[in-house]
């Protein structure tokens, strides 16, 4: 789930629950700012932060840099290097199409193009209503099910391009249901 971080956490005074969780996690690491090896937990921390916020906004990067006692450039350099980290928010429904070799030779590119066509966005983009985003993945290792698509962690195997509209519709209906429940509550 994406949370737009609106309050500045720099001074450590915020009631944002995600941010408090991150803070608690950083406390458990007991980072010694003088330890030359302290950076070895940076990638794990970034994984955790991304799982909380859905992406890694600048303000979080700066905060993590401060807690580790390293420069913001150091943190941002690591984030930009690894594909897993993103600095832009993703859609509520994240479509990941595996583009590993086994999926590719079984037509994953056609499936990916169909998702792009139906949703009207390119890989790496988010729909204007923030509902969907598409990414291509490198091999999830379920080659027996090629081509594979994962949507919010649920795996779809042996996907054909003509199934794409149905798959999207299914998630759209579920999402609308959840929204309606929230409004009614």
């Amino acid at each position: 789930m994406n949370t737009i971080v609106t309050q500045s956490p720099c001074c450590g005074e915020t009631t944002n629950p995600q941010f408090q969780k991150l803070n608690a996690y950083l406390d458990t690491l007991a980072i010694d700012q003088k330890d030359p090896r302290r950076k070895d937990k940076l990638i794990m921390t970034l994984h955790y932060a991304q799982s909380l916020f859905g992406y890694l906004p600048e303000i979080i990067q700066i905060y993590i840099a401060q807690r580790f006692g390293i420069s913001h450039a150091d943190v941002s350099g690591v984030i930009s290097f690894y594909n897993f980290f993103t600095v832009t928010p993703k859609g509520k429904i994240q479509v990941n199409v595996c583009m590993g070799t086994a999926c590719y030779v079984n037509g994953a590119d056609k499936v990916l193009r169909e998702f792009e066509r139906v949703l009207g966005i390119q890989t790496g983009e988010v729909t204007s209503d923030q509902k969907f985003s598409i990414e291509s993945l490198r091999c999830v290792g379920a080659c027996g099910l090629a081509p594979v698509v994962t949507i919010n962690g649920k795996v779809f195997g042996k996907v054909k391009p003509e199934q794409v509209p149905d798959i999207i519709e299914k998630f759209l209906i579920e999402e609308t249901k959840i929204e309606a429940e929230v409004i009614n509550a």
Binding site: G100, A102, Y104, C139, G141
Partner: peptide
Amino acid sequence: EGDPGAFMDRS
């Protein structure tokens, strides 16, 4: 295990 299409180590 980064080779696309390889899942020995995962298994």
